[in-house]
């Protein structure tokens, strides 16, 4: 009898413990934490561990090499180039997407039938996979069968080679990515813009501010936190660019569009299957992204404080 009472008591105290909001919060977070742990934290630690070994994908001939893989990176021109291509892509894609998304959000912020329709249309590419978008753009821009080169040719223009041209390939991929993703930025900015108190615009109007001045002196300062969020997420996403390059150019022509992630992938998952070296490059990329993310976050926080 005593034993039953103890068990019921234990159960009650268990539920009471997890019913408290500060404890229940952990339960709600648990699924995300478990997913993060297994798919982010453990692989991250595993990658760091592998980077100190000369190891192939079959785990044969494993040898501890210390920092050799990291040193090799600085002598590997193709690896360094792939980092530069990634930075180049990020510099093209991130600002363009944030600007296009913000401008589109500002233009469509009033709730009219046309604006609602336009928002839906602009969001459609987001739900397409990057692979599908890549294939569509590859066909559209193909110099032999593509519609866009055909139209340009009809206007008497030279047919650009787009994905096959060493200079045009990366900008073409960046444009495709902006087209594909700006709907997300637009939606975030739209929410931020719609949350701005109309009284601020009324005051600005009474002070004689025109639309352009209202945008730069009322809208922008008010959406700095969302802007910061978009810049940071786009930055991280751009530094990890892979799918669209894999589908459209596969890193060519002449490795001019090979991104860091693609290089890591080709080193680790195709001949010569150098998993250790690929892990070292992945670790370096991780550090670069971390530095960029923290810096951009600090800069945006500083800017936010300044605006207030």
């Amino acid at each position: 009898m005593e034993e039953i009472d103890t068990s019921v008591g234990k159960k009650r105290s268990f539920f009471r413990f997890w019913n408290q909001p500060k404890h229940a919060a952990y339960l709600f977070m648990a699924p995300s934490i478990i997913i993060l742990l297994f798919f982010m934290v453990i692989p991250l630690i595993g990658t760091l561990g592998l980077s100190f070994f000369n190891i192939n994908i079959f785990f044969t001939g494993t040898k501890f090499v210390g920092l050799d893989n990291f040193i090799q990176f600085f002598h590997d021109q193709r690896a360094i180039n792939s980092m530069w291509h990634t930075v180049y892509f990020t510099l093209l894609e991130t600002p363009t997407q944030v600007i296009v998304g913000t401008v589109a959000a500002a233009a469509l912020s009033r709730t009219t039938l046309f604006n609602r329709f336009s928002r839906s249309v602009f969001y459609v590419p987001v739900i397409c996979s990057l692979t599908t978008s890549g294939i569509i753009f590859s066909m559209l821009l193909d110099p032999n069968i593509g519609w866009i080169p055909y139209v340009l040719h009809q206007f008497g223009m030279n047919t650009p080679q787009f994905f096959r041209d060493a200079t045009l390939a990366m900008p073409s991929i960046a444009v495709m990515t902006v087209w594909k993703n700006f709907g997300v930025t637009m939606t975030i900015m739209l929410t931020a813009i719609q949350a701005i108190s109309p009284s601020l615009y009324e005051s600005a109007e009474m002070d004689g501010a025109n639309k352009k001045q209202q945008f730069f002196h009322v809208t922008i300062p008010q959406i700095i936190p969302s802007l910061g969020f978009c810049v940071m997420t786009n930055l991280i996403g751009s530094m990890q660019v892979f799918d669209q390059i894999y589908v459209t150019t596969a890193g060519g022509p002449e490795f001019k569009t090979e991104s860091a992630v693609q290089y890591i992938y080709s080193r680790g998952f195709s001949a010569p299957y150098q998993l250790g070296y690929a892990s070292a490059v992945a670790t370096i990329l991780f550090v670069i992204i971390a530095i960029l993310s923290v810096s951009s976050n600090l800069y945006m926080s500083h800017k936010e404080k300044q605006m207030r």
Partner: peptide, 17 residues
């Protein structure tokens, strides 16, 4: 241990693609 660690990392990394 290295082998297990490697398997986890390789499979997790390869898993998504």
């Amino acid at each position: 241990l290295m082998k297990k660690l490697g398997v986890v990392a390789a499979i997790a990394a390869a898993g998504v693609s």
